[in-house]
């Protein structure tokens, strides 16, 4: 046990860990928002609700079907992603030619519906979800205690983030996707089915949110409003990072999580607001965001 700036190392590294965990979720969610925004030009306000759906899907899989965490990690994102595909086909595809604001309003409405239904059946108290057996316990690193599950969340979200980055920036599919963002008409002329690509992109983005939800289930309780509190912070993260860059979204997400964690140690009163304050400062100094291109 030692002290840094008069703060016990346990407390400092503990908050740093929480910061990294929160940062993982910020990164996964802002990544999904950025992918969706890049392709559909829509800010997906229901992203928080879909994150919550992911957590509930994991909960139901365990309680009703008896399927464990590892199955949920695969099944929940696919199932929730599929509901995303349905939403895109039913609603969003009619809005692309309109002002962007309508996409925001529509997805806000969807978020209210989803959250309202779940609040009606599950109230606002949280439901517990057990940490999977393989990840019980933790490591004593000498300067702090590291629970296995938390280490897994950080490592796995880094892997998912970089896999997504690789998919979009380094593969042929990603190249088509980026080309379709720039000039959909031309890409269609090359025989690529752009509308289907848009649909699947939305499904993928929503699936990412659901994946984050499954990972969050054992850490936070599974509750209907777990997403709506988070999504506003993620919006601020997205404004800070700018949505033009996938890597920007990832780095900003993790970075802000850590800053928030450190604020909890050194100046706890500001820990709720620090990200918003950073957003205001970034807007004043660099309006297009840290990694943004134009507005």
């Amino acid at each position: 046990m030692f002290e840094i700036f008069g703060i016990p190392s346990q407390a400092l590294f503990g908050q740093l860990l929480i910061g990294l965990i929160n940062g993982s979720f910020y990164a996964l969610l802002s990544l999904g928002l950025a992918v969706i925004f890049g392709m559909l030009n829509i800010i997906n306000f229901s992203h928080g609700a879909q994150y919550m759906l992911g957590a509930f899907a994991a909960y139901f899989l365990l309680q009703v079907a008896g399927l464990n965490y590892w199955v949920a990690l695969v099944v929940a994102p696919i199932a929730v992603g599929f509901t995303g595909v349905v939403i895109e086909r039913l609603f969003l595809q009619w809005l692309y030619k309109l002002d962007h604001l309508y996409g925001l309003l529509l997805t806000f409405g969807l978020a209210l519906i989803i959250e309202g239904v779940f609040r009606n059946y599950f109230g606002s108290s949280g439901l517990p979800y057990r940490v999977p057996d393989a990840l019980q316990g933790g490591q004593n690193l000498g300067f702090m205690f590291l629970p296995n599950y938390r280490a897994w969340v950080i490592v796995f979200s880094v892997v998912v983030c970089f896999a997504t980055w690789f998919l979009i920036e380094r593969t042929r599919l990603g190249a088509n996707l980026r080309a379709a963002t720039e000039n959909p008409t031309l890409v269609r002329a090359f025989g690529i089915n752009v509308p289907r690509m848009i649909t699947l992109t939305y499904g993928f983005g929503v699936g990412l949110a659901a994946l984050a939800g499954v990972m969050a289930a054992p850490i936070y309780n599974v509750s209907p409003q777990m997403g709506s509190d988070l999504i506003i912070i993620v919006f601020a993260v997205v404004v800070i990072g700018g949505m033009g860059s996938i890597m920007g979204a990832i780095l900003t997400g993790f970075g802000l999580g850590v800053i928030e964690g450190l604020t909890k140690v050194f100046f706890p009163e500001a820990s709720n607001t620090v990200i918003f304050v950073i957003m205001a400062i970034v807007l004043l100094i660099r309006p297009s965001g840290l990694f943004g291109r134009g507005t």
Partner: peptide, 13 residues
Amino acid sequence: LVIQGVIFVTCVM
């Protein structure tokens, strides 16, 4: 809350 959401969706669509 659900009804409000439905009104949102209906208005936009």
